[in-house]
Write a protein that binds this DNA or RNA. Sequence first.
DNA 1: ATGATATACGTGCATATACACGCATAGTTC
DNA 2: GAACTATGCGTGTATATGCACGTATATCAT
Lengths: 147, 147
Amino acid sequence: MKIPNQNPSICSCVNLRRASRAITRIYDKALEPVDLKITQYSVLANVARSGPLSSSNLARILRLDRTTLVRNLKSLEAAGFIEEHPEVTDPRERAIRITEAGRQMVEKARPLWVQAQQQVEDHLGSAALQQLTTLVTSLETLSDHIA
Amino acid sequence: MKIPNQNPSICSCVNLRRASRAITRIYDKALEPVDLKITQYSVLANVARSGPLSSSNLARILRLDRTTLVRNLKSLEAAGFIEEHPEVTDPRERAIRITEAGRQMVEKARPLWVQAQQQVEDHLGSAALQQLTTLVTSLETLSDHIA
DNA sequence: ATGATATACGTGCATATACACGCATAGTTC
DNA sequence: GAACTATGCGTGTATATGCACGTATATCAT
């Protein structure tokens, strides 16, 4: 017996996680031609834009757990898209920089990302996307408040 | 140099993933006393409600990749909250059932889940939660359409 | 009955996520 | 300058996520 797909849950968390998985599929699919996932593109584009910076600072920018970021950086470094060097001003820090190959990859991936962005905006409408930014901020505020 | 926390991204996917991580922190925190994560509670509560069913059907209900679900079930089975038995009508299927210990766990966890639900609703407002259900449906539709 | 197709299931692999530790160095206070 | 505190970093462990495969059984078409 085969059960059909299901409606949204009554649990906000479950719904948000479902939405997250769904949109990730959309973006990952769009980035498939350059063999990048949206998580990797996101990190790479941020390193490209925010210049050399430490993993702690990058984690704060991405609102991602630092130790999670450390592992995510591994694959990007293995692929030769970023490199790390000891920071002179503070020996504890390691400065993360994008490489030339990394910069080229970002350039190649950007149009695919734009396409996914457009696809989602066309389907959801810009109002929904605006509400989404509010949602993020509210939830992060609540989460920070609790922790 | 320490960089402060960041505003929402211009990328809808990144924002949704951020929101997902934030709300997961909130629910996981609420469920901490019973040592369950929201992902596990979600699966367990669904098994409890939807009675014995196959992993494929449960995956469709949860809109979760079947192979992902299979691993998630492992820890619940190891904890003794669910059990699997071969299905008589179709030897390929395995019927997943909640155990007595599982049922007790759901009972114990439910008030904590309700508390998280309430907390989020108080902070975001019911209108935002309603928009969220629309968002889930739209994104899953778009994702299905593309795939 | 046979062959094609659909469905069910599990595992290997890669990545994502985050908590709990421990170690090293910077900064602050006395 | 010594003690305390804050910050930066990486790893161990556990879970979450999904794609690519291979295997087994059901179902359907002829």
